[in-house]
Amino acid sequence: MNKKYQVFISSTYEDLKEERDQAIKAVLEMGHIPVGMEMFSAGDEEQWQLIARQIEATDYYVIIVGHRYGSETDEGISYTEKEYDYAKECGVPTLGFVIDNKALWPHDKTDNDTIKKDKLDLFKTKVKSKLVHFWSSKEDLHGKVSISLIKTMNTHPRIGWTRSDEAIGPEITKEISRLSTENANLRKEIEKFKKISDKQANKTGEVARIMFENTRTVYVREESGINWEDCDKYKTELFSIFNYIAPSLINEGSNLRIAQDIALNLHGTSYYQNIPIPTNTISDIIADFVALDVIEPSRKKHAVSDKEKYWTLTNFGRDFIKSARRSALESRRNDEESEQKIINDD
């Protein structure tokens, strides 16, 4: 069955309209269903019950945090934080995206009130207690939302939704019909976003999805003469393979260097230096990355006697690996901060 996931997108509203649009666009490009608080009026308790129902029915929850805390309930908590707390209470997987403090940001979209700023800092700390990503622009956010959702959907699949003619039982048909009705106004707005030309951001999410969904089986040889069938075998995603070889291709790397980088990351240092991986496997992997427009033949000159083939990253490949590695660095930084917080609390 073609499963679709419901993704609840939460943030303060006026200051993050364009960023929310990018997150909604990323979800739509993946073929899933975005929902959010803009469908309802925030100050109405009856409307909160509708929002709560949407969160309860949500498969994944995306929280985007900028430099404003947002409008507050009578209890003194922002509606954004109230939505986040309720999603965690319901056990919905949450994906946090917090603005990088170094990012350029308009002054009129920043809280200046001391109390608001203190509440915002506490809320950011709460969000960062789990894995988060830091973003610096709406385009940067678009790519990171796409990559994070793809990874989370692959590693933590949820119930999701299916077409009524594929599902079993009338209850699912009824629920999908209800959801379609409630999302009618939002879908009209989404049509506007589909026309926005943002090819680079679209391409990043699409290439990441393809890399995550495609795996390759790789044999690694330890010594000369051993049959490939007797070698250690590894199955890994194209996304991981690209991360293995990309650092060497920032300048340029040969077919052999690419094979050695893959062997080192999969097997360790005890691989056969000359032909660690079958040449046809390396050729297929290179062809895949050429098709995805992340690598291309190097234009640097080499000695006539040098028969090696050399490759380098395309401009898109450089942007793609920068985004992927920055995301990994930010995740690692958050893990270290969380670990240090636990140590300090102890």
Rank of each mutant, 00 (worst) to 15 (best):
N265D: 13
A328I: 05
D346S: 08
S137Q: 11
N280H: 15
E166G: 01
A42C: 08
K301T: 06
M153A: 08
D74K: 13
P278Y: 07
H267R: 09
D232R: 10
S71F: 03
W48I: 09
R333Q: 14
S338L: 12
S338R: 15
P247N: 08
L313I: 01
P106E: 08
D230H: 11
S298P: 00
N183T: 12
L249E: 00
K195L: 13
E56M: 03
E337S: 14
T314Q: 04
K203W: 14
I150N: 06
D165N: 08
R187Y: 13
S327H: 06
Y310A: 05
K300A: 04
D59L: 04
P93N: 06
G160A: 06
I33D: 01
T279L: 13
K341N: 14
V220K: 05
N214P: 00
Y86S: 04
M1S: 10
Q200H: 03
G96F: 03
A201R: 12
T269V: 13
L249D: 01
K195Y: 11
S283Q: 15
A42M: 07
A246P: 01
L16I: 14
I250F: 07
E191R: 13
H32F: 10
T125V: 01
E337V: 08
G76P: 02
I210P: 00
V294E: 07
D59P: 04
E223V: 12
Q6E: 08
R332I: 13
I9E: 08
K88R: 09
S177Q: 12
L329C: 09
T80V: 09
E29F: 02
T155I: 01
I277H: 01
F320D: 00
H67S: 12
I196G: 00
F123P: 02
T114R: 14
T204I: 15
S11V: 13
I51V: 15
N255S: 12
Q22I: 10
P34G: 03
V62C: 07
I64Y: 09
R187T: 10
E139R: 12
V127D: 07
I277V: 15
I63C: 09
I258N: 03
K235F: 03
K124M: 13
M39G: 10
K130T: 11
V92D: 08
D165S: 09
K194C: 01
R68F: 02
K235L: 05
G143E: 12
Y84I: 11
R68Y: 06
K307I: 14
I99H: 05
N214I: 05
H142Y: 15
G76E: 05
M39W: 06
Y310C: 03
F134A: 00
Y86H: 14
E339R: 15
M37S: 14
E18G: 11
H142V: 03
F193D: 00
S180H: 09
P247K: 07
N255D: 13
S41K: 15
I286T: 08
E83C: 04
T314L: 00
V207T: 06
F316E: 07
E38A: 08
I147P: 01
N202I: 01
Y86R: 12
K17C: 05
A87F: 13
P157F: 09
V220C: 02
L292G: 10
S224P: 01
R318W: 04
C231P: 07
D108F: 11
I282V: 15
I147T: 11
K144Y: 00
S10W: 06
M30C: 04
P278M: 10
Y79I: 03
G253P: 00
D346M: 10
I262S: 07
K233H: 02
Y234G: 00
T281Y: 02
